[in-house]
Each structure stands twice: as structure tokens, then as C-alpha cells.
Design a protein around this nucleic acid. Sequence first.
DNA 1: CTGAAAGCGCTTACAG
DNA 2: CTGAAAGCGCTTACAG
Lengths: 348, 348
Amino acid sequence: MASIKNVAAEAGVSVATVSRVLNDHPSVSAEARTRVLAAVETLGYRPNAVARSLRTDQTHTLGLVISDVLNPYFTELARSVEEEARALGYSVIIGNADEKPELQDHHIRNLLDRRIDGLLVSPTDGGSPLTLDAARGGTPMVFVDRWIPAVDVPVIRADGRAAVRDLVAHLHGLGHRRLAIIAGPAATTTGSERVEAFRAALREYGLPLPDAYIGQGDFQAESGRRATEAFLDLPEPPEVVFAADNLMALGALDAIRARGMRVPHDIALAAFDDIPWFVHTDPPITAIAQPTGELGRAAVRALVDRIEGRPPQSETFLARLVVRRSCGEPASPRGLSPQPPSPQRSNT
Amino acid sequence: MASIKNVAAEAGVSVATVSRVLNDHPSVSAEARTRVLAAVETLGYRPNAVARSLRTDQTHTLGLVISDVLNPYFTELARSVEEEARALGYSVIIGNADEKPELQDHHIRNLLDRRIDGLLVSPTDGGSPLTLDAARGGTPMVFVDRWIPAVDVPVIRADGRAAVRDLVAHLHGLGHRRLAIIAGPAATTTGSERVEAFRAALREYGLPLPDAYIGQGDFQAESGRRATEAFLDLPEPPEVVFAADNLMALGALDAIRARGMRVPHDIALAAFDDIPWFVHTDPPITAIAQPTGELGRAAVRALVDRIEGRPPQSETFLARLVVRRSCGEPASPRGLSPQPPSPQRSNT
DNA sequence: CTGAAAGCGCTTACAG
DNA sequence: CTGAAAGCGCTTACAG
């Protein structure tokens, strides 16, 4: 593959001049520029990004470590991250942790070794030593969706508490009193917060949240299935299952179907995170929707701000309830489907 | 960040010795090794992969350019690719073309500039000059799922012809005679092949495939919606719509639902590519399933073979029909759902 | 077993 | 405006 030396030789100039042309440095004569460009063309030369990175100590690359690519929520997040990064002149390398802390650490280490300019993380756990070191060690970092409380890293996320409250109001209005939740790992912020929001909302309605109605999941489908089976085996099964993410809702649906039961007739179902298929499932599933694309874009902007020396800002968006039919027919046709014109934010 | 020089100073040896220890070179004294390892530990040293790549001309990185990350088929493909690559000591950088040739070229160029060791591509088009140049220019390359006929590059893919024949047999058995297809872009192999397979199968049953029953889609949901609307506007609408991928099936479902029609009562629906949600849609959707994980893993193995100097092999897996209820109730309960114990392959 | 030195492909003060 | 030279952090013949 042609190197800058070959181009210099072909154009009859020094490599310094070639480099200047390539980097749009102002002090290059028009003639030199023309000759260099011609040489680049005939040789099909492309600068070696590896060499450039070594010299400039910049890779123009962002690392994104997500918990699970197969989760449509994270897929969409990854897509919006890549889009915004590209618009700002960065590439992104995705590391999929599959909800496994070791795998997350593997990717963080790999990304750090590649000297990415900044790291976007949606932590799978409460914070491995490696993650904490990286955060404190000066690697520009931003948390997105999930975060680690102990460290001083900007967080871009959605607050789902109001939406969970709306959901509980909806369920209560439908006459449901025995509500259960399939939680995510307690070590993740989204894992514990969604349970807390649910518990707080139930309290407002004077409803209990017995331990037996808290299924321990890991955000993957299989755990949703197991938790739901446990619920159905209870002497007094819940009337509603609220899955803390869409994959566990899928597992719950599998379990319900396997018993020949029907939603919402035999049991109601709702999920955190909305996906296009929820419109077409049997029945359409009531869900809490996050402004995923906005989260991804805001996270990139915050990270690039940090990288380029501007003060990054944490940002919190609002999730909202989307009522469909999986919890029963709403009393009134207009139901309780709050649709704020656009998600509000609060800067921190 | 500590460099190899700092480690050498700390350990009281030369950088060459440090390098040898790090690369498990045999001729290093036990004592030197111990001292170096200790220095690495105290400094928290991590080798700079950028510098190493420049020197060795290897990045241990594979590029994967897929047509659309939001398509669960490609998400799963990407996941299996990353898994197998990791097992073989490679990282992967994913480029999402979003079914846009320009974006595909952007990613290929970016990946080439980063000097990835090899490229896995599922081309969005019939072959841009850039792709062809890269293929001919000696960059190790393997096509996965879709391919470009003109170039000599190994192809890892699934053959869906038998499954499409099974599907048509199923539909015919159910009494359907007016069958329509939403095709992918003719410039992609999967776009044209699926139509051809469908046409050939219809011919076996003496059924026509009029132009009006061929909707032109682009593998994205919106195009599936538009094509379906056009079908429904026909004086004699089809009895069955076969979407050439799962996202266009989603769009078709949206269009059908928007007209207040029901599947399969008013119109039947089937899709190429199976996804977990198809079990839970209303009704469950009959689909053709590819062995996606196997495709991804085989593609990585072929590419790594090529990179490491072993002869790579093309491989063709078999897709299979999964009958559910979206085309009507099967005549016999055991239906026609061929389930070969394991997908067969044919090497080329 | 070990170190000094060259070199991978760039960029960038420095001098002219 | 231009070029010679240093240097980014590594690896690896080469000599000892």
C-alpha cells in the first residue's frame, strides 16, 4: 500500500509538504498542492490512520460499551450514537457486554488499549475496578442509560419515575391490585431504580409489593420466563406482571403462553422500553418509552465536549407511558396515555 | 499514560527486554521477567495497540459492514461475528450502512484507513468501485449473507430456495392462489434471489407472478408499508403477501392494521428471516429462518483463514420454513413444517 | 539472555 | 512556501 513517501516521490516534494496538503495546512503553494493531489490520485493513496494516531495521540474514535446488542433498545442507542459521532467526525467501536461484567471489562480494556479518545458506557454492574480506574484515570467518559453513582462522570439518561407512576395509576384504574415486577440486576441503576419507582408508586395507592412479587431478572429473556413461572406458581399469583425491560417481557410472554394463559384476560403485562413490535403482539403491549435516539445523541455531544475541552453536561430526559391493550381495556377511550408534545429535559 | 520506556526504566532493563516479556518471547531470564512484570504492575502499564499495529502491520481487527443494524437479523449476525472473532483473538469494528451505498462506502473507506486485517461485507448494492477495488486490491475479504457476483471473494450465505418452495407448497395447500412478494433491492443478491425463488416455486404450481404482485421494497419497514398499501389498492388484491425480510413484514403489518384488516382472515402474511417476536405477534408469523449464528461464525473463520494464509472456503447453509398461523390454519395438525435435524452445508 | 539501533507512517516545530 | 529532522511507542533482526 502506497505510503506518504511514495506520494512525495511521485509529486517531487517532501513528505512534509504532502502532509500539509493532506491536512489543509494554509502555507502550501497552489502548484505543490496540485502536484500532490495528482500523485495521491494516481497512486490511490490513503493516509494510514494508525500512523497518524500514533503521532497525534488522537484516534478520532469513541468506544461504546453496551450491556446487550440483542436488546433493541441498545441497538437503537448504538445506532444514534454512531450517527451523531459520525456527524462530529468520530467513528465508534461498539463493545457488547452481554450483561456480563467480565465481558464488559474485556471490552473496556480493549478500547483503552486502542487509545480511543473517549468512552461511552452503560455499565453492567456497580463498577468494576477497571471502570473506576478508567473514569478516575482521566479517560474522557460519559455514562448513558445506566451509571455508577460513586464517580464523577456525566450521566445521560431517562427518568422513568413519572411514567411508572402513570402506569400504576393506569393499572389501578383498571382494577388491578396484585402487581408484580421482574427487576433487572440490583447492581445496575436501571435495575434498582425501576423497582424503587414501582414500589413508591404502589405505596401512593396503598398497595403492597411483597417480596414474592419481585422477580429477580437479569434483563435477558430467559430470566423473564423463569420469574414469570415463579409468579404463576404462587398460591396467589399477581394480576399484573411489569417487566423492567423488553426482553424480559418477551420471556414473560413465552411463559404465559406455555401455560395456555391469555393476556390480559388471565394476566396483564407491561414493559419498560418500547419497541415497534409491541404494536403487533397479541395483545399490543403497554410500555414505557424512552427517547432513545435523543439519549444517544446527547451522550455523544457530552463526550465530545469533554474530549475537546468544553465542560460536559449531564442530562435527564423523560420517559413516557404508552398505553395499549395488554393490561385490559382502558375505562375511557381516551385512556390515560399522556403524550407530552416533546420530552422535557433538565440540565444538571 | 505509562509507555514501554517507563517500564524499562522502572525495571532497570532495556525496552527490548520489556517487549520480549510482554510478547512471551522465550529468551528472557526469569529474573528479568519478574522485574518487568513487577514494573508493569506498579505503573499500571498497558501496551499501546496503535504503536504495536504500526510496527507489526497487524491490527488484529476485523471490519464488518452490514446493511442495517436495526434489523434483528443483522444484529444477531453481528453478535455471532464478534463472538467468534473474539475467540480467535480479533476485535471487530461494525459499520452500519443503513441500506445506503454511500454510507457503506464511507465505512469501508474508514475501515481500510484503519488498516483492519480483514473485511466482512454484506453489500448494500451491486458493488461500488471502492468495494471492488478493495476486493481486488488484496484486502482479505469475505461476503456474508449478500454478495457481489463479479469478484472472487468467498461467500458465506444461506440458500432459501428449498424453504421458499416449502412456503409456496404450504400456501397452495391452504388454497391461496394470488400470491404477492415485497422484494428487496434488485441490486442485492438477496433482493433478487428471493423473488426468483418465489417465481420459480409459483411456476411449479402453475401460478403466475404478475408485475403488480411484485412490490419493490428496500428491506426497511416503510417500504413494506407502501408496497402493501399498493397491493391493497389493486382491483384484485393478493391473498398472500410474502415480505423478503422481517422489517418489511413489520411495515406490511402496519399497513394491514391501518385498514382494519386481519391476518390471516383478510390477507395472509409470511416473511423471510425469523425473529423471536414472530411467535407473539397477532397472529404468529410464518417465516423462513436462517441459521444466522452459524453464518456469522463461519464467515469469521473463512476470513481469518484468509488472513492467516490458509485457503478460505465458501459455505452455503440451508434456510428452513417455520409454519405458524399467519397464512391460515394448516389442513393437518402436523402441517408442513420440515424440521431437518441440523442444517446441511455444501462446501464450494 | 540482553541491548543499541533501525524503522513502521505519519506530523510538526524549526530554520531557511 | 518548503524541507530536514525529530519523535510518537512499539518490535525485531543483529551483534555480543
